[in-house]
Structures are given as C-alpha cells and as structure tokens.
C-alpha cells in the first residue's frame, strides 16, 4: 500500500529532523534564543563522518561516535567563544541570533573554500546496505539504523531530563536562568552541558544526513530551517513538542509530496511555519511567546 510506504518514508525523515530539532529546542528553552549556528555543527559532522569513513575505517558505529564527539566539541566551542561573552554582557537575545547567523555564514563559506563546494559522498559500501520489506512497503536498513539510534537518543535524553539532577536543573533554569543561578545552580556549567548535548545530537544527525544525502556545505542551513519549523510546530521550548513536531513535519511533508504535488513540499512547510506563527505561536505543546514588558 502506497500510504504505508509514504508513512515509513515520513517517519524516517522525521527521525533525522528530530535529532536536530531537539538540540535546538533544548537551547531555546534554556536560554531563550534561536541558535542559528546549529546548522554549522550538522555540516561539520557530516564532513567528519565522510573523512573518517573514507580514510580511516568504514564502520558506521565508529562514524557515529566520531560525529557525536565532534558535534559536542564544536557546539561547546561556539558557545564559549561567541555566545558566552554576549550572555555575560546580558546582550539582547536578537544579538545572539545575529552572531549565530554570522558564524553560520562564515562556516559555510570556509568549508566551500577549503573543501570545495562539491558534495562528498560517503563510501559506497555504506550507501548500499540493502532493505527489508514490511508488507508492501520497503524500508532501507540504514533508515532502520537511523530510526533506532534516534529513538534511543531521544528517549535517553528525556529520561536524563526527567530523572537526573542536571535534568532538574535544566528544567528549572528554563523557567528563569537568573533565578536558577540564585538558587545555587552553576548556570555556566549548565549551559556548557546543554550545548554539549545539543551538539552531540546534531553531530549524529549530521552523520546520518551525510550518509543519506552526502556531505555538502549547505547541508546544515537547509536542515536548520526544517528544525525551526518542527520546533515551532511542536511548540518552542518544549522537548516532547520538538520530537512530536519533527515526526509530524516529516510525515506531512512526504504526504504533501506524494499526494498533492512533489514541488509544493517546501512551500507547504514554510507556509505552515508562517501560519502557525500567526495563528498559534505556541505550537502544539509550547509556552507563551508574547513579549514581556
């Protein structure tokens, strides 16, 4: 049945979106700003995965770990070098967004200069792992891997947030960073942890995207837009919302492409974004978004 196949396609796409969106939403909920540099982590790790798999060892788990670690590192570096000084100065949140944009432009063009604008495709052995059939639908093995890893990562994250002490700190700080600091929470350390988690997830997302879509300079920025849409759809600031939003977006996109018109898919996604922001900015599960006085 075509519908089942499209549904599976949508969930596969959604799982990749989810890895990106969750990291972005985590940062947003803690620090109330949109990290435009999130895409940088994704792109960089896609390339890291390419280099590791092409020149060192063609092994997916190794690739995932390398991407995870690099993502973590890059994200923390970005936080410490760019966002931290601004936050210390209590800069307007918009400034952080602009700085993120600047970083993302820099990174994308540096990659084009040093690694050439042409895409880098992962080794063929990784690309042709075969598929399995479920009823009348087919799903690639790699997509199952991606789905599996994503689910594990996301469930792990939710557990961490709900049960651990750090998780409690994060939840508290997401209401008010300043109050949390007054209560004795080390907010500096917390921010690093949050960026690290977001970076790690984004890194893994980058690795998977590299496999499925090849590594190319604009990879991060094009997927970041989808992450925004998913986050807004699910509700900015809500982690479960981010996950739900991502899967819904993935499935909706595929359905639009399959049943309505394949070229209207992106028009649909962006229009959805605008409509939600206009009609229900809090999304499905999010918090208030009005400007405070």
């Amino acid at each position: 049945m075509l519908f089942l196949q499209q549904l599976i396609n949508g969930l596969a796409i959604g799982s990749v979106y989810a890895l990106m969106t969750v990291g972005y939403s985590l940062i947003y909920s803690l620090m109330s700003f949109t990290n435009f540099a999130h895409g940088v982590v994704v792109t960089v790790c896609a390339y890291v995965g390419y280099f590791v798999l092409s020149f060192f060892i063609t092994n997916i788990p190794v690739g995932i770990i390398c991407a995870l670690v690099s993502g973590l590192a890059v994200s923390v570096i970005i936080e410490l070098s760019t966002y931290r000084p601004l936050l210390l100065r209590n800069a307007k949140r918009l400034y952080l967004c602009i700085a993120g944009l600047g970083l993302s432009i820099m990174a994308e063009n540096l990659i084009i200069i040093f690694l050439s604008g042409r895409f880098k495709s992962y080794p063929a052995e990784v690309l042709t792992l075969g598929n399995i059939t479920v009823g009348s639908a087919t799903i690639g093995i790699i997509d199952l891997v991606i789905l599996g890893v994503s689910v594990v990562a996301l469930v792990g994250l939710e557990l961490y947030i709900r049960t651990s002490k750090d998780g409690l700190a994060i939840r508290g700080a997401s209401f008010s960073l300043d109050n949390a600091s007054i209560m004795g929470i080390n907010t500096d350390g917390l921010m690093i942890k949050v960026f690290a988690i977001a970076g790690a997830l984004a890194g893994v997302a980058g690795f998977f995207c590299g496999i499925k879509y090849t590594a190319y300079p604009k990879l991060g920025s094009s997927l970041t837009n989808k992450a925004f849409i998913s986050a807004v759809l699910g509700g900015l600031g809500s982690l479960p919302g981010a996950i739900v939003g991502s899967f819904i977006l993935g499935v909706l996109e595929v359905m639009v492409a399959g049943y309505v018109s394949s070229t209207l898919r992106d028009v649909f996604s962006f229009s959805l974004l605008v409509i939600i922001l206009l009609v229900k900015p809090t999304g499905l599960m999010g918090k208030s978004s009005e400007d405070k006085a």
Partner: peptide
C-alpha cells in the same frame, strides 16, 4: 506582536 526571535523566524 511576537517576540524578537519569533518575528525573525516568521
């Protein structure tokens, strides 16, 4: 009426 970064994304 939206906050700064919402407007930005919009």
């Amino acid at each position: 009426k939206l906050r700064g970064d919402y407007f930005l994304i919009a």
